[in-house]
Design a protein around this nucleic acid. Structure first.
Ligand SMILES: [Zn+2]
Ligand SMILES: [Zn+2]
Length: 660
DNA sequence: AGCACGCCGACT
DNA sequence: GTCGGCGTGCTC
């Protein structure tokens, strides 16, 4: 009698053994139906063994083997095992997550006919390369096996062209390429561009918007080697790719590569593991690399390839910091910005005002008693959405109507305070009645369809002034756009999070890059009360390296990443005392095993304590040594599972957390 | 996380 | 008497 060791989608940090009659040699990697408790579950066979460490009477026989699907390859299983180990997550949950939902339930997609993919016509001509692009491609082409490259190049310097050429080269060798892009960048336009460039390649798109059947089909096409290119969001880092030859991570600094719930993985970091594991090169591209990546490039762990020039015939935009200390702003805008807008309107060019705050105003307040609109489920204000006359919580979705009078004192004099995109839109429309003002944020672009419609409208030149959040910052080329105004950026300058400046710089650099891409020179006006701040000065000089060096210096002084490695234990419960009590108990356990290499902080309530009626707290763990942190987390998390906790308390570990 | 079992309150 | 509330314990 043999034993199979199975990974099951349950939140338990262990595998489960079952009896099996006569397992064949190819059982490892297959899906299997097994009895579990009172029901049945689908699991993944990880090992076939002679005996179990469980007492024989506990062992139950498997129900059935899923033979429709070939066994998942060993390297795919190893990838899941790495994620389980690194992110301290149950292996069964990882492998389940790595499968498309349909396969997770043991179903296969209906028709698996080879889609009429290849042969879409003529290949789109590739533009000529700049010397810098040639140098980069030469370096990439010369590697044999694993090597990580950081392709650092400003917007318009032709990073995408380098990706496409590098992909072309691996396809020519009969290999597959995996290209990861941020959620917001995976648009029909990008898919179209890749498809036009590789008319004979079989391209699979993978993101959460793809329907279940199509996603499963894409997975199988990648798995069976029919797919040549997988283009997708962070999910697609888990695609099995037997002929993998290259991984590309575009906008590698983008926050959407880190999953913020469940398995809290960073697709960029998992991609690096994968490239190493499969011994293939990986290309990380960005105009504003994450400081982690930039640090690795500086210290020689990654190879730095730089594109300094705009490949398109256009100069860098002129970036000016507008000092707003001495000036009375009009609707949040300076004279300089208003004049610049007028100029663009007169010339028939487009302008964009970037304000990273949606809604009409961040809060509604009573001038008599001090009441403010707050969410009863969260420690947050309800945001005024005047466009649909609602108050809305941006954290839990709670909605109410806008009260006519103060709910506390009955005062009729209640006002929206502060400014969001809706208010700016209204103000601009009043100031420039003849201009076509278009707001682009998550509210106006609530579905992919509406988003595409807005983009089409912008491209057709049917808008003069765009008001938008970071949605507008990424990946879209607006040829008629020559002015970018930035409003209200200072708030992020002094945020509590040590990564806030890094994010702000990246965001402003990116949104600034929207202006003047084609033949018209661009201008960027950033309004600030701290015009001399080094972050703005570096932006004005287009000097990412100077900013990054200064930030890295500060991080080193403070002992922050990338000079330290962090993990966060978070807890949430109906009361913050419960959360803190759990963390205190966890800390006691940790003290028993933490050596000097691992630093344990005190449990503290989270910056926004209450969210969706749960009160949250966290405990930071830090070490200069990654292996020391990993070893500590492995034992600690085992102890945490054994800790007795109230039913209503939930906890998780976040390795390499993005926000503290 | 599910899902069973189990032991006390109020309803036909 | 029993229907059902959710506390606690287990899942190979
Ligand atoms: Zn009041
Ligand atoms: Zn809320």
């Amino acid at each position: 009698m043999s034993i199979v060791r199975v990974a099951l989608d349950v939140p338990l940090p262990r595998l489960f053994d079952y009896r099996a009659e006569d397992p064949a040699g190819d059982w490892v990697g297959r899906l299997v139906r097994v009895p579990f408790g009172s029901g049945e579950k689908l699991g993944l066979i990880l090992q076939v063994l002679d005996q179990s460490d469980q007492p024989p009477e506990k062992l139950r026989p498997i129900h059935s083997l899923l033979t429709e699907l070939p066994p998942l390859p060993a390297d795919w299983i190893a990838l899941c095992e790495f994620c389980a180990r690194y992110y301290q997550h149950p292996l069964g949950e990882v492998s389940s997550f790595a499968l498309p939902p349909l396969l997770r339930r043991g179903k296969l997609p209906k028709r698996r006919l080879a889609r009429p993919q290849p042969g879409r016509g003529d290949q789109e001509a590739s533009p000529p390369l700049t010397t810098e692009q040639q140098v980069a491609l030469m370096a990439i082409g010369q590697t044999r096996g694993f090597e990580a490259f950081l392709l650092h190049g400003v917007t318009g310097s032709g990073k995408t062209e380098v990706y496409l050429r590098a992909i072309e080269a691996v396809l020519a060798q009969g290999c597959q390429a995996l290209m990861l892009v941020p959620e917001i960048a995976l648009t029909p336009q990008l898919e179209g561009r890749v498809a036009a460039r590789f008319p004979d390649a079989h391209i699979v798109s993978a993101h959460s918007g793809v329907a279940d059947a199509a996603r499963a089909r894409g997975f199988l096409e990648a798995f069976e080697g029919q797919a040549d290119i997988v283009l997708g969001t962070r999910l697609s880092v888990f695609m099995p790719l037997p002929r993998l030859g290259l991984i590309v991570v575009d906008e590698e600094h983008d926050a959407s590569f880190k999953q913020q719930d469940g398995l809290r993985y960073s697709a960029r970091d998992v991609a690096i593991f994968r490239a190493k594991q499969r011994d293939v090169p990986i290309l990380l591209g960005s105009a504003t690399p994450s400081l982690e990546t930039f640090h690795h490039a500086r210290t020689g762990r990654y190879r730095l390839l730089t594109l300094t020039l705009r490949a398109v015939a256009a100069a860098m935009p002129d970036v000016r910091i507008v000092d707003t200390r001495r000036e009375k702003l009009q609707d949040g805008m300076s004279q300089a910005l208003i004049a610049a807008l007028e100029l663009r309107l007169a010339r028939g060019e487009q302008s964009l005002i970037f304000l990273n705050r949606r809604g009409y105003a961040p809060v509604l307040a009573c001038t008599a008693c001090g009441w403010i609109s707050h969410c009863r489920r969260c420690a947050a204000n309800l945001v005024v959405h005047l466009a649909d006359r609602r108050l809305r919580c941006h954290h839990c979705g709670l909605e109410t109507g806008i009260p006519q009078a103060c709910p506390d004192c009955g005062n009729l004099d209640i006002h929206p305070f502060g400014r969001g995109t809706q208010r700016l839109e209204v103000a601009l429309q009043e100031r420039f009645p003849e201009a076509r003002v278009l707001r682009v944020d998550r509210d106006s672009a609530s579905s992919p369809k509406k988003w595409q419609a807005l983009l089409a409208q912008i491209h057709a030149g049917e808008a003069d002034i765009l008001v938008g959040t970071q949605m507008l910052a990424k990946g879209h080329d607006f040829p008629k756009l020559t002015l970018v105004g930035v409003v209200g950026a200072d708030a992020a300058l002094f945020a509590a999070d040590f990564r806030a400046p890094e994010r702000l710089f990246a965001q402003l650099m990116q949104v600034g890059g929207r202006s003047g891409r084609a033949l018209l020179p661009g201008e960027v006006l950033i309004q600030s009360e701290y015009p001399d701040h080094p972050l703005y000065q570096a932006l004005a000089d287009h000097d990412y390296s100077r900013f990054a060096s200064q930030q890295l210096h500060e991080r080193e002084q403070a002992g922050f990443p990338p000079f330290a490695h962090q993990a966060l234990l978070r807890a949430e419960a109906p009361s913050v005392d419960q959360s803190l009590a759990f963390l205190a108990a966890a800390r006691v356990e940790a003290l028993k095993l933490a050596g000097e290499a691992v630093m344990l902080y005190d449990p503290v309530p989270m910056r926004m304590v209450r969210r969706m009626s749960l009160e949250r707290a966290q405990l930071l763990v830090e070490s200069a040594s990654r292996p020391a942190l990993q070893a500590f987390l492995a034992t600690w998390s085992q102890l945490l599972y054994e800790l007795k906790t109230p039913r209503e308390l939930r906890w998780h570990l976040d390795v390499d957390p993005q926000e503290l």
